[in-house]
Each structure stands twice: as C-alpha cells, then as structure tokens.
Design a binder for these strands. Structure first.
Length: 595
DNA sequence: CGTCTTTGACCTGCGC
DNA sequence: GCGCAGGTCAAAGACG
C-alpha cells in the first residue's frame, strides 16, 4: 500500500505512550469510585482539550493531590479524570478510524482484484461451456490441457510469431520487464472473446477466449485459452498469465471487466451480454450444468470431456474422509466388487452445479488406508483450504489429459524451450477413447507404496512414478522419454537441500535433502526449487505439482501445509503462467531461503 | 424445519 | 440380448 508506514508507526507509538502514561497516572490517582451521575455532569460541561495539555493537567493534579486536602480536590479530580478518560477515548477512536480507513483501502483493493478475477472466471466458464456445446468430444480431446494456454506474440504489423517462439519471446519480454520494470510502465490488457463455432471465420481449433496484453511497445501478447475439459484450469492459467504480465507492466485495465461492479453485477452483465448475442445466458448454461435439475446434470456427467480424468489419493487415516477443504455431500454408497468396504460417493457442494465428485473407499488389505478419488474440476472459487488439493487434482488430471492427445498437437502447442522440451514428441500416446485414466498418489507411510502412479486404460502407456522416500521425492518418467538437458539448473548452484535433475533414460528428478533433520523447511525448499525447475515441461509440471501439492496438504503439521501450499501455489502459478520468469523468481526464493 | 445421510431402485456401459 | 458392475437418483429417516 502506498501509505506512509513510518509516519503512522511513529504517531502510533507516541499515542500509545500517552495512553500508557495516562493509565499509570489514573491507576494511582483514582482514590474513589466514579458515579454515573458525576460522569454525566462532567462530560456535559467539559470542553475538548488537546492531548498534551490533558496529560499535563492530570500530571499536575496528581502532584496536587499529595499537597492539598482531599475534601476540596475530589470534585476536580473526578472532573479531570473524566476529561482525561474522554480524551483517551477520543484518541482511541481516532486510531480506530485510521485503522478502519486503512482496512477499507485494503478491502477496496482486494474487492477490485476479486471482481476482475471473477469477471474473467465468469467469462471463461461461460465461453467454454458454449464451446462445449458446439464441439464434439473428439475435438476436445485433441486439445491438451497444457496447451490450452497458448501464447502468441502479435507483432506490430499483425504477424504472429510461431508458438515456439512466442513463449520464448514472452519469457524474454517478461525478463526484460523484470530487469527494467520502469521501462514499460504502461500497458493495457483486454479480454476479448469470440465463439469460434459461431464466428464467421469459424476456426474451431482456435480459442473462445483471448486475453490481449498490449504494452506501449506496440507488441501484443495474446493469452489464448483453448477449450479444454478443465475450465478452471484454463481460466486460472489465463488469469495467472494475465496477472504475471499485469505485475510487470503495472497495467490493470481490463476491457472486459468492470472492477466497480460487484461480482453479482458482473455476472449479470455477462449474462446480458450473452443474451444480447442470441446465445444462452450464463445463468441458463450454469443451470444446464447444475444439479438441479438432475436430468441435466446427468447429461453433463455423461460428457466424457468433463469426466475422463481422475486423481486418486491414498492416505493413511482413521477419519471417514480426507479433509481437503471443500464441502461435500454424500449422495450414494455402493459395495464394490472385490472390496468388502463400501465405496462412498460425494459431490462438491461449495457451489451448485460444481461437477467435481469424489469417491472414498478403504483399502481391503489395509483398512487404515483411505483412497479418495477426485473427478472433475471445480467451477467456482475455492476456499483457501481447498486450493492445494484442487490444484492437485487439476494438475494431475491435466497431465493425464495432456497425455491423451496427439503428438502433433503437443508439438504445436507445447514447444517453449528446447532445453526442456521433454516428451513433447516422444510421449507415448494414449488413445482418446481410453476411459477414465487415473493418476494415483500414494501417500501412505509404506515406503514401498510411497509412489504416485500414472495409469491409463491403455496398457501401452508407461507410468510416471513419484516416490516419496525419507530424504526426498523421486520422479521416474517413462523410459521412452527423451533425454533431458538440464541446462538451467546445471549452471545453478544447488541449495543445501540439493536438487538434481538427471539426464538419460529413465529420467529421474530427485529432491534430496542433505540434512533430513530440516525436514519440513527442506521439503518446502525442494518443492519450490523442483517445481520451478521443471515448469518448462507441462508434462512434468502437472504431474509433479500434483504429487507435491498432495504431499504437502497431507502433512500433519497444518502450519507446514499452509506455508508450503503458499509457496507451491506460487510455483504452480509460474508453471501455469509462463515458461520463463517464474522459474527465476522461484529459484531466487529457494536460494535465499535455503541459506 | 431444513439439511444431511442412508439405502434400495434405477440407469448405463461393457463383456460375453 | 442378457447379466454384471459401477454410478446415480430420490424417498425416507436421522439429526441439529
């Protein structure tokens, strides 16, 4: 905030000293009880006085108490005491007013930011739902989640750079802005939308949402959110991309949003805008995907594009369900074949119409192990406590969906940095028809079972494996992966909790703590470093983010979980937003904290 | 009384 | 086409 903190602090210190001195004096000088009648009398006739004079009066009177007789001084003492109390109360009120004003400023800032983000959320969800109505699953399945965020650099002459070059240019542009932030102080951003299925030029492979970021260099950066099965991911990615750029350019103009509007108004305006285009309103679309009416929900759930990825988390707990921060409503229970323990079905009740569901079932072999399977992506802002797990499921599901795409799409959408171009062309291909690929995070204490498997119905696919050993996390990628050139971290001095990226087959990313006694902090550092280091590759980003987030959220130490979620959230934002700047930022953060 | 859970019925997809 | 299993619905009961 732009307030003069030093000045306010010094003023506050002086005031608090005055209050303390008054309290000390009063505690000594008060030889009797004050009746309400006396207080009223004095209060009605006491003129306001300044603080300093009031303190001096009390002090002088305190001295006079010791020399004069009590009988004559009692009324004066009472009056001055009450005057003093009045002044003190007024001073406290002034402080409270100041604090209130500061808090209002903070609130207004937060409200404005929330409104802007909410506006983008509504816009993106609405557009993607429109997109989902017009496109077949076969088309959706060809759009990988990680490529849903496609960044183009439109030069001043209107020519577009290739996607491969776009990320690089954006990264360099961002880095340049970071180095000389004042060089590009202005800029504008606009969120524009178009429905490709309805546009005259009707390119269904292009985006329904385009966030244009334009700075004064006449260079436009278009954050292009392609239709995906994970609306929130795409939205968050777009928002985070926009945020990252906004922080650099200190530009906050968003044409498509009106920060002065309340979220409800923004939602209504979006609905009106949609209605004006002879398209179903947002409310209608949400209702169509909402839970009542139930018939419509069924149609949504049968849309494979919404439900074709699952994230399963195995934890050792005695609780009936895993506390993931969300609100769930149980809607069914079933005895599954081969497991005497019933499987419970829950749906998210944070917002009506949220498509996320989870299944909870205890392991037949070890009933202390609880398996929670998440499915879908939240269609609403999440509670803070639920962000970590939601990020887990979204990222992991995104990884699965990414793998279920054609190599040509990946090659077109992912190429950002040749040094980290892992798996872009060599990932095994999962058939789009493979039902319900599932990623499993095993967070039990069994070392042999401390693994995260990425399974798919297609047996040809080799799994990623995340192992959580005592001294770190190991990630094993499929042996078909191309060798990695860890050029970025190869030149960097690893923190005391070392991070290593091995090249070759199989690829192994290892976080190894040099001092296991540091435990939580080391884990946090490793998480940040590793997450940042592999943000260049969406495959690894999604999978590792999923594993790390789950691990952190399952830590028994709540404070640790909160802290790590915060840092990991930053890393995830970086992973989802751009491929350049956030790595540097996270690396610096890790290096500074690990020393 | 509203909300949530329970539980049997029903629906859907898949394999034979 | 049939049966099975998984998933969902919705009425009834429990609970605060």
């Amino acid at each position: 905030m732009g307030l003069n903190n030093d000045e306010s602090r010094s003023t506050e210190a002086i005031s608090s000293q005055r209050l303390r001195s008054q309290r000390i004096e009063l505690s000594v000088a008060l030889p009797f009880e004050i009746s309400s009648e006396m207080a009223l009398t004095v209060d009605s006739g006491s003129p306001p006085q300044s603080h300093a004079s009031n303190t001096a009066t009390v002090a002088s009177h305190f001295v006079s108490l010791s020399t004069n007789t009590r009988e004559t001084d009692v009324p004066r003492t009472t009056q001055q005491f009450l005057e003093n109390e009045l002044k003190r109360t007024r001073t406290e009120m002034e402080h409270m007013i100041d604090e209130n004003q500061q808090m209002r400023k903070v609130l207004s800032l937060m409200t404005a930011e929330y409104n802007a983000l909410y506006q983008q959320l509504v816009t993106t969800v609405a557009l993607q739902q429109q997109q989902g109505k017009t496109e077949k699953f076969s088309q959706l399945s060809q759009v990988p989640l990680a490529t849903a965020l496609n960044v183009e650099v439109v030069q001043g002459n209107g020519q577009r750079a290739s996607p491969q070059r776009s990320f690089t240019e954006h990264s360099s542009h961002s880095a340049g802005s970071e180095r000389s932030r004042s060089a590009t102080p202005t800029g504008s951003a606009q969120v524009s939308s178009r429905s490709p299925g309805r546009s005259k030029h009707g390119d269904k492979q292009t985006s329904p949402l385009r966030v244009k970021l334009e700075d004064d260099t006449n260079q436009k950066i278009i954050v292009q959110a392609l239709p995906t099965v994970m609306p929130m991911d795409t939205d968050k990615a777009a928002v985070n991309m926009f945020r990252a750029y906004k922080e650099e350019s200190s530009s906050q103009a968003i044409d498509a949003s009106n920060p002065s509007e309340s979220p409800e108004l923004g939602f209504a305006s979006e609905a009106r805008e949609s209605a004006s285009q002879d398209e179903p309103s947002v409310a209608e679309q949400l209702e169509q995907n909402g839970w009542p009416p139930n018939k419509r929900m069924k149609s949504v759930l049968q849309d494979t594009s919404v439900r074709n990825a699952r994230v399963s988390v195995r934890t050792r707990t005695d609780a009936p369900t895993m506390n993931d921060g969300c609100q769930w409503r149980k809607y069914g229970q079933k005895l599954a074949k081969g497991n005497p323990c019933p499987r419970a079905y829950y749906r998210c009740t944070v917002a009506p119409g949220c498509p996320v569901r989870k299944q909870v079932q205890r392991c037949a072999e070890d009933r202390s192990i609880l398996t929670t399977t998440y499915e879908g992506t939240h269609s609403h802002p999440l509670p803070a406590a639920a962000v970590a797990m939601a990020s887990t499921t979204s990222a992991a599901a995104g990884m699965l969906l990414l793998g279920s795409t054609s190599s040509s799409d990946r090659a077109e959408g992912l190429g950002s940095d040749n040094s980290f171009n892992l798996g872009t062309h060599s990932m095994p291909i999962i058939s789009a028809s493979a039902p319900f690929p599932t990623i499993t995070l095993d967070l039990t204490n069994n070392p042999a079972a401390n693994q995260m498997h990425l399974d798919a119905a297609n047996g040809n696919r080799q799994p990623y494996t995340f192992s959580m050993a005592q001294n770190g996390i190991q990630m094993h990628a499929p042996s078909m992966m191309a060798p990695v050139q860890s050029s970025y971290y190869g030149a960097a001095k690893p923190p005391s909790g070392t991070f290593q990226m091995y090249s070759g087959n199989p690829l192994m990313v290892q976080f190894q703590g040099g001092n296991t006694a540091r435990g939580p902090q080391l884990l946090a550092d490793s998480v940040t470093a590793a997450t940042a280091a592999i943000t260049s590759d969406p495959n690894f980003t999604a999978a590792l983010a999923a594993a790390i987030t789950s691990i952190l959220s399952s830590q028994p130490n709540n404070q640790l979980a909160a802290t790590n979620s915060s840092s990991l959230g930053e890393a995830l934002r970086g992973a989802l937003s751009s491929h350049g700047l956030p790595i540097t930022a996270a690396k610096k953060d890790t290096a500074s904290r690990s020393t």
